[in-house]
Design a protein around this nucleic acid. Structure first.
Lengths: 198, 198
DNA sequence: TCCTAATCGATACGAGTGTATCGGATTGCG
DNA sequence: CGCAATCCGATACACTCGTATCGATTAGGA
């Protein structure tokens, strides 16, 4: 079934999008090209063109691919945690790249974030994902017995997310080691829980 | 003196680099092109080519241009502050875009940071600038009477810088308003100084 | 004055881009 | 067994890109 109507459309699309992500991770967003992606996926340019009408569709598919990968990563990290504090810690730690695969994934995310400064569609999607994550963590903490001393759960969470994102950027740029970033992140988390009755 | 040897080389170079920054701010790093920059600077492509041997030189000049602009901004912000705590606060607040010009400037910085994930020369320069800023703030706090409770000045500062960078990214992506980001940043700074005898 | 070096506009070339289009291959259905 | 729908490889076209190159212009020293 290498041709014809029997092809599993979504599988092929996903494979091409995944190859596009690898390409972006290694060569930057500028390499997001029909022909380059085709070469990276080991596929003819015509095939890529068949599954994606234009360059924007290819870009959005690649973005969805990383976003789903990140969501899956977060989900498994959450699955292993029990208490709400552990869930929060796991989610935030997942934003710091420690191994090669996480490094690549977060490099792709960083590339798309800078693309989003120009492409409004990407900015919207990133905002939605960010708001979703924030709401999830907010529900998590509010449904538990945890109450933050600042009486401002959303603000504190947003600050924590900003810290994690900043540390992630530092690691990606080689300004900080993953271990150091994780330690600093843990300090911020501990500060947040300080003086809180669980 | 529109031609000939009498031209002020550095002035022309600077003007072209500044125009390149405006272009990057408005259209992203992908617009960093000889012809586009020439058009943005109101200059013939040949002139740009004359002052910059290749695209990399143009990119580095544009990067230096923003870096100097940021340094100047920080310097004036520091000049208005008296106490070391105020200096630190001023530096960190300068990383959050509040008006249009700061917005544009930080957009350019963000674009170059994502470019640095691919271009090693940029990564090196950013690391150097970051280390320099960190060392400056460290000296500032250590030479003053301020001692951090965590007994880990560098780590705390790095965490604070990460928070500011993360908040800056949130503002750039429209996930947070400048005022909100400034408030969250202030909270982080206050937490840092909590329990510290000045 | 004139001549050398700097400046710069214009043009050209090859590579790479997005996209349109065509034709053959393949498959599942009637 | 057709046959229509899908799949996809190939090609073409009009662009933009970086870069090389040439010639004209200009300024300042000899």
């Amino acid at each position: 079934m290498s041709r014809g109507v029997g092809r599993d459309h979504e599988t092929v699309r996903g494979a091409i999008a995944a190859a596009a992500c690898v390409l972006v991770a290694e060569e930057g967003a500028g390499a997001l090209t029909v022909r380059r992606v085709a070469a990276a996926a080991g596929v003819s340019p015509g095939r890529v063109q068949h599954y994606f009408p234009d360059r924007t569709a290819l870009m959005l598919a690649a973005f969805d691919s990383v976003q789903h990968a990140v969501a899956a990563e977060v989900t498994t990290a959450v699955g292993e945690a029990a208490a709400p504090e552990q869930v929060l810690t796991a989610v935030l730690r997942a934003m710091i790249p420690t191994d090669d695969t996480a490094m690549r994934r977060l490099r792709v995310v960083a590339q798309f974030e800078s693309l989003a400064l120009t492409e409004d569609i990407l900015a919207t999607r990133i905002r939605e994902g960010h708001a979703e994550l924030l709401a999830f963590l907010e529900r998590l903490l509010e449904s538990s017995r945890i109450r933050l001393d600042s009486n401002n759960t959303e603000g504190t969470l947003q600050g924590l997310l900003a810290t994690a994102e900043g540390l992630s950027g530092q690691v990606l740029l080689g300004q900080s080691s993953p271990d150091r970033a994780l330690a600093l992140l843990q300090t911020s988390i501990d500060d947040m829980f300080r003086g809180v009755a669980s």
